[in-house]
């Protein structure tokens, strides 16, 4: 059992598990964010809970950061190993004849998402840490909505966010169905899983785009 994650199958299972974990996080992140469109108070309440609950802050947040780092590091390791497995490339390779573009270019969508996360952390996580642990300001349960709409005032930032969400969608369309395959799901469910992957991969990023654009235009 101890050697399972040293094998190629073990690595892909680890990649799938971390991916599913991040998908779960993404879903709850979306649910919280979409409330900002309907109710400032509910958004503030949920954000305050997430930002101050010790379980979320000191256990789930480190696990999440570890999960993100693991997924990216493992993604790069797998890409490096896979490139090594074909030292001389084909003069002509028609990948489009047998596979989806998104499935062959997960590393590209992944790098864009990683770049987005750097911006996202700079925008929200770093100021949050500064507010709470460096400046140690008194907690204001109503500050979150204002902080959110302030970030979506810039058209450049909103454009960058929306562009990143498109790449997130491309990553999810293959990532979700691929993770279930890696976890050994019987292929009789493949068609349903593929439909769910498309629905999730298009729906969630589209929803995030909507939130960003909504706050941009509503406060234009």
């Amino acid at each position: 059992m101890k050697n399972i994650f040293k094998s190629s199958i073990g690595r892909k299972i680890a990649m799938a598990l971390s991916g599913v974990f991040l998908i779960v996080f993404l879903t709850q992140h979306f649910i919280i964010n979409i409330t900002s469109v309907f109710s400032e108070d509910i958004f503030n309440m949920l954000s305050h809970f997430m930002g101050n609950n010790p379980l979320v802050q000191f256990i789930l947040q480190p696990i999440l950061i570890a999960g993100v780092l693991f997924h990216f590091v493992m993604g790069f390791v797998l890409e490096w190993q896979n490139r090594k497995a074909r030292p001389v490339t084909y003069a002509m390779y028609k990948g489009s004849r047998n596979s989806m573009f998104v499935s062959r270019n997960m590393i590209i969508s992944g790098i864009v998402i990683l770049s987005f996360l750097v911006l996202h952390f700079y925008d929200f996580w770093v100021p949050e840490m500064d507010y709470k642990y460096i400046q140690v300001k008194p907690e204001d349960p109503n500050r979150y909505y204002e902080e959110l709409i302030h970030k979506f005032e810039s058209p450049i930032r909103v454009s960058l966010y929306c562009l990143s969400f498109i790449f997130l969608g491309l990553h999810l369309v293959h990532g979700l169905s691929s993770s279930t395959q890696s976890l050994g799901t019987n292929n009789k469910y493949a068609s349903t899983i593929q439909k769910i992957s498309y629905a999730f991969g298009i729906g969630i990023p589209l929803g995030f785009c909507f939130i960003a654009l909504y706050h941009f235009f509503i406060h234009f």
Partner: peptide, 30 residues
């Protein structure tokens, strides 16, 4: 290399071996 579930192998296989066997392999390996 490592499988990333692109499905190219199944499409190009002259005998049409299904990706289902890869999922089965993953289960059996675990």
């Amino acid at each position: 290399g490592n499988c990333t579930n692109t499905g190219a192998c199944h499409v190009e296989c002259p005998k049409g071996i299904s990706l289902d066997y890869i999922a089965k392999l993953n289960r059996e390996y675990v």
